[in-house]
């Protein structure tokens, strides 16, 4: 399912102009990372995708739906949104009920809900925790419950808001694995992140925002190699990219595999 954004502008009631005319499209099945300094407009932009924010001007289309004409609850069947802080959404007595909350809201039959929940729990390695109260889990695992609760909704588009913040290396790898599985299923994955190494390893397209405008948009290698332009939005290229430049490698490398190949 494609996302089409046409001259999107958004001004908060405080008068802060957060988005200043953004136009872009995301094709079905793309893996897109959105990067940029704090206040660049990343969260404001993606909150338009599921109707949490309505454009001050311009439009956002999710497939054939103009988001301004649909409720958030309705758009939830097309766009899943994993919030940054899992504690702001978990409320059920056990993990199973928590994960089933979304698909039940979407009105799916019991058999379908059960199948979706089972798949989401398996993908997030929560099979053994179904009866645990989410608040008894560590913050790391609460994050996985939040992920599972959105994956279980089986939306064609999934948004992650800073998924790796505060996560240890093992859980970052788990999250990367979830994203890879969603990619295999043909889902569109959009991630806001400050973790550039995570971005370089897992995303094929990068959009850099700065002060409410698109600064760069293109394949990850092209965007992450533009050190001077990225500096405008306080983003450093991945460590390997910088190391490759220091070593005088001709091609821009952005992940381990490319780096090793370039050294051979």
């Amino acid at each position: 399912m494609n996302i089409e954004i046409k001259d999107l502008r958004f001004t908060y009631p405080t008068g802060l102009e957060a988005l200043k005319g953004i136009s872009l499209s995301v094709n079905a099945g793309e893996q897109v990372a959105i990067v940029g300094q704090n206040g660049a407009g990343k969260t404001t932009l993606v909150r338009h995708f599921n109707g949490l924010l309505r454009p001050s001007a311009g439009s956002v289309w999710i497939g054939d739906w103009d988001t301004s004409k649909y409720s958030v609850a309705k758009l939830a069947s097309r766009v899943g949104y994993v919030f940054q802080n899992p504690d702001e959404q978990l409320f059920s007595r056990d993990v199973l009920t928590e994960v089933a909350f979304g698909p039940k809201n979407l009105g799916y039959e019991k058999d379908k809900v059960d199948a979706l929940v089972k798949r989401a729990l398996s993908l997030t390695e929560l099979n053994d925790q179904t009866e645990t109260n989410p608040y008894d889990l560590s913050p790391t695992w609460r994050k996985m419950v939040a992920l599972a609760s959105i994956i279980a909704m089986d939306t064609p588009i999934v948004i992650f808001d800073e998924p790796t913040t505060g996560q240890d290396a093992v859980n970052v790898a788990r999250i990367a694995n979830v994203i890879a599985e969603l990619k295999k299923e043909g889902k569109t994955v959009i991630t806001i992140t400050h973790d550039i190494d995570f971005c370089a390893e897992n995303f094929e397209r990068v959009i850099a925002l700065s002060k409410g405008e698109v600064l760069l948009d293109g394949p990850a290698r092209e965007v992450l190699g533009q050190e001077e332009i990225l500096a405008q939005t306080y983003v450093d290229p991945p460590q390997l990219t910088r190391l490759g430049k220091m070593l005088g490698l001709k091609a821009t490398v952005i992940n381990q595999e490319e780096f090793l190949n370039a050294l051979k």
């Binding site: 599921n50 409720s71 958030v72 939830a76 702001e88 959404q89 409320f91």
Partner: peptide, 29 residues
């Protein structure tokens, strides 16, 4: 919190009972 729950398909608009029911996922967090 309400934004997070609406993103999971929770309907917060409508009659009294629908609105009251929407409070449950709000109170815990």
């Amino acid at each position: 919190i309400i934004s997070a729950q609406r993103s999971r398909g929770l309907e917060t608009e409508g009659g009294f009972f629908k609105r009251a029911g929407a409070l449950v996922p709000l109170i815990g967090p």
